[in-house]
Computed example of a mutant assay.
Amino acid sequence: MEHRPANVVNIHDAPSKDYQEGQHWGGSYQPLTPVLDQQKGRLGVNLTRLPPGRAGCPFHSHALEDEVFYILSGRGLFRYGDKICEVGPGDCLSCPAGSGVAHQLANPFDEDLVYLGMGRNDPNEVCHYPDSGKVLVRSLGQVGYLEKAAYMDGEAELPKIFSMHRK
């Protein structure tokens, strides 16, 4: 048998990564596209297992990254904007970026929810978390809360560029 190239990954060989926090958040996933994952902004696919009683992540919307979820087994709840519906095997969920509509998957049922998650890992992504008011700015490596400020708030009377020029 020939050696398989790095861009061919069998699910049985993909490492599983746990991302659970507390009693009700997270599950595990297996990255199926490590060759694409090496360069940010490329399409990626993960196989995700969400155990009973857990939500995959907080309710959020994306500015740049479209996401698609394809349910393989189990049942779950899909929250999209102000609507919620039950999802199961064969359902494909589309979450377009830039719409301002947040989404979330959760599993209140008694067996694992297993699905493929597909999307880009954009280095410039900005996410909004409406339930908590948080904002993620990936390029800054920060999640936090924004406070309103005037455009010139905190800026020096003499712009720094002028003192830099004199040196």
Rank of each mutant, 00 (worst) to 15 (best):
S61T: 11
S61R: 07
H62Q: 03
H62P: 00
A63M: 13
A63Y: 11
A63D: 08
A63N: 05
E65W: 05
D66H: 12
E67M: 08
E67Y: 03
V68M: 14
V68D: 05
V68C: 13
V68R: 05
F69N: 10
F69P: 05
F69A: 12
F69Y: 10
Y70G: 00
Y70S: 01
I71K: 05
S73V: 02
S73L: 02
S73G: 02
G76K: 08
G76A: 12
L77R: 11
F78D: 00
F78Y: 14
F78W: 12
F78T: 00
R79W: 01
Y80N: 05
G81S: 08
G81Y: 10
D82C: 02
K83D: 10
K83F: 03
I84S: 13
I84Q: 13
C85L: 15
E86T: 13
E86L: 11
G88Q: 09
G88M: 10
G88V: 06
P89T: 13
P89D: 03
D91Q: 10
D91P: 03
D91Y: 10
D91C: 10
C92M: 15
C92V: 15
C92D: 08
L93H: 07
S94T: 06
C95S: 10
A97S: 07
A97G: 01
S99T: 15
S99R: 14
S99A: 04
S99C: 01
S99D: 13
V101I: 15
V101G: 02
V101P: 00
A102M: 04
H103N: 01
H103E: 04
H103G: 01
Q104G: 01
Q104L: 13
Q104R: 14
Q104Y: 05
Q104A: 13
Q104W: 06
A106D: 13
A106L: 09
N107I: 06
P108H: 00
P108Q: 01
P108Y: 00
P108D: 00
F109V: 07
E111G: 07
E111T: 14
D112A: 08
Y115T: 02
Y115Q: 02
L116Y: 11
G117M: 12
G117C: 14
G117V: 11
M118L: 14
M118Y: 01
M118K: 03
G119P: 10
N121H: 09
D122S: 08
P123D: 09
P123A: 15
P123Q: 13
